[in-house]
């Protein structure tokens, strides 16, 4: 057996020793659950467009509906089971973002409604808002500077 005296060698050995995630199975589950959530969104979208709602408003309705669904499933202690099965399939759609706000809110209820629920709600999803919003400000400033979509310049 190879010499494992250095940390690097040990890390290599551990990597070999550790079983890999069942990536094919995970990807398959992520694909169909993620796809399905998007189709549910599409059904809601089509229905409200059919009812004559404007496009922007309909997109918001889709988001809010899926977030409500995610909140409901999280509150009845089911979302984590879907997440364990589907991995990124339930994480990447807006449902995962909602779950990452709702689950700490529930968890830290025991530390009170202000410093527990109120403060800890964003422990997982906070970074998404920080980076998403900051990126949007930069996009806005860049657009302002060039007053055109950047792609037109390239």
């Amino acid at each position: 057996m190879e010499n494992l005296n250095t940390n690097k060698d040990y890390q290599k050995y551990v990597n070999k020793k550790s079983p890999n995630s069942p990536i094919l199975k995970n990807c398959f589950n992520a694909f169909w659950v993620g796809g399905l959530i998007c189709v549910i969104g599409q059904i809601i979208y089509d229905y409200f467009i059919f009812r004559g709602f404007p496009q922007d408003l309909t997109n918001t309705i889709v988001s809010i509906s899926l977030i409500f669904l995610s909140a409901f499933l999280t509150a009845i202690n089911v979302f984590n089971k879907i997440g364990k099965f589907a991995g990124a399939g339930s994480l990447i759609p807006i449902t995962g973002f909602a779950n990452s706000i709702i689950s700490p809110a529930m968890e830290y209820k025991s530390e009170g409604y202000v410093m527990g629920v109120g403060a800890k709600m964003f422990t997982v999803a906070g970074p998404v808002l920080v980076y998403g919003i900051s990126a949007s400000v930069i996009v806005g400033l860049v657009y302002l500077l060039f007053n055109t979509q950047v792609i037109m310049l390239v």
């Binding site: 169909w32 189709v39 399939g89 759609p93």
Partner: peptide
């Protein structure tokens, strides 16, 4: 919607696992 949504999730799954 199913295919594109699914693919976006699969990319994330590969990133998580790898």
């Amino acid at each position: 919607a199913f295919i594109i949504g699914g693919i976006l999730c699969v990319i994330a799954q590969i990133l998580i696992d790898k």
